[in-house]
Design a protein around this nucleic acid. Sequence first.
DNA 1: TGTTTTATGTGAGCTACCGAACAGACGTTG
DNA 2: CAACGTCTGTTCGGTAGCTCACATAAAACA
Lengths: 252, 252
Amino acid sequence: MSTKQAAIGSNQLLNGLNDSLRAQFIDLCEVVDLTLGEVICNLGDTIHYIYFPIEGVISWEKQIADSPYLMITLIGNEGMLCISLMLGINITPCRAVVQKAGFALRIAAADFTNQVEQNPELNTLLKRYVFVNYNQLMQTAACNLFHLLESRLAKLILMFQDRSQSDELHITQELLAQMLGVRRVGVTKAAGSLQRKNFISYSRGNIIIHDRQGLKTASCLCYQADKKTYARTLGSTVSTLKNVFDDDEIFT
Amino acid sequence: MSTKQAAIGSNQLLNGLNDSLRAQFIDLCEVVDLTLGEVICNLGDTIHYIYFPIEGVISWEKQIADSPYLMITLIGNEGMLCISLMLGINITPCRAVVQKAGFALRIAAADFTNQVEQNPELNTLLKRYVFVNYNQLMQTAACNLFHLLESRLAKLILMFQDRSQSDELHITQELLAQMLGVRRVGVTKAAGSLQRKNFISYSRGNIIIHDRQGLKTASCLCYQADKKTYARTLGSTVSTLKNVFDDDEIFT
DNA sequence: TGTTTTATGTGAGCTACCGAACAGACGTTG
DNA sequence: CAACGTCTGTTCGGTAGCTCACATAAAACA
């Protein structure tokens, strides 16, 4: 299943390219497995490859002094890894960890840079993706300050579901807590609340999502806002955007 | 004093360009006043101009649903305004408000885009600046979650001082509270604590900084980390970096 | 099978910050 | 001078999330 043929057309970001350009780009890529828990890169690492996930979920985590790692965003087949290279920096400022196994296309940094320089269409597309990240990050900075843990947890679960395309997630409360930058007991309490509302059920690292709509009402509006930003920014170039997110209601 | 001649060499970011390129760029700019409280742009505005502050301080503020505006960063003569255009987006995602009067170079969006396309050196420099912003934003997202108000206030005061190049700041607690996303009484308490430690004194919208070193110990390490990121990322291109920040101690 | 490891749930006390309301102190303007 | 608006300081009750400690239960392993 992880052949390059199967890979074509399965990263939503690359789907924003026209067929010939996409084929040319993917021709320079190789398909690699993403194994659960794998650390793809660490703070300070030189960027050797750029990743475009096809299946699986990767968390992008920042560590600041005196504090544990904090998840900045989740990356699945709607995005790419190591956007620093788009900004001319070949060093990663973060750690990237595989949170759901799968596989990805990856391209060598030099090839990537060449392609971006030679193809204005590719350059435009990926710059827009950087903008989406930049915007989501501002949203997250505010979200972290203002919103209750239960809302943030609901948002995280929804994000994870979007990117893993499954109603069953495999992730422990301990890991969720680390991503959210809170104690495990906090997640237990918030997850218990979501469970009592019958939005999810939880058992030893398995979350089953029963009521996606309910989760949306429980989550903060940041979730919807981020998706709207993605849609509005990449919508004109990413033609198959509807596949990225099952967006039932995008509102203004 | 606000003639274009005086302006040359007074934005630290543009100082990263070689002399002829900088002269050529500034030739396309005009000098405009920044008046206190002026809203330079609002969420959703089309970007007509890019600003490079020479004197004065601008706050970059995001508003998310159900919450007041939150300051994302402060911009002075170490940076530029409206970096979205570097990412191919000509709409501002935020509000920008002048928090200290001064003046700035500004260049029309079309001229800016042309210059960036034609000058790889300029393009590289400003992409790196975007990276610095991106990195600081991740830091802020974590800072907002983990760090105490007093530390965040100390950091903000230091940032303001760096960008206003004065030991006396004119800003009310109400405004600081809004920037930090907390209530005014919270700032009163935190500022009172800093005052009792003799780091600052405070009186009706005037902060006088007595002990910069003390403020640094009171602030979170995010302050130092952000400056280090700036120095390391732009240091190789910005030759006069030492002028940007009076960095007594940059450590690893 | 019993033992250990891993994952989740509960409790009590603590702290930072919130919400609201109010008091004082300074500056400006009539 | 008096009246008013602005800015800062304080108080009281409430709550979210923290620290620490411990309980329970499913899975893994011997």
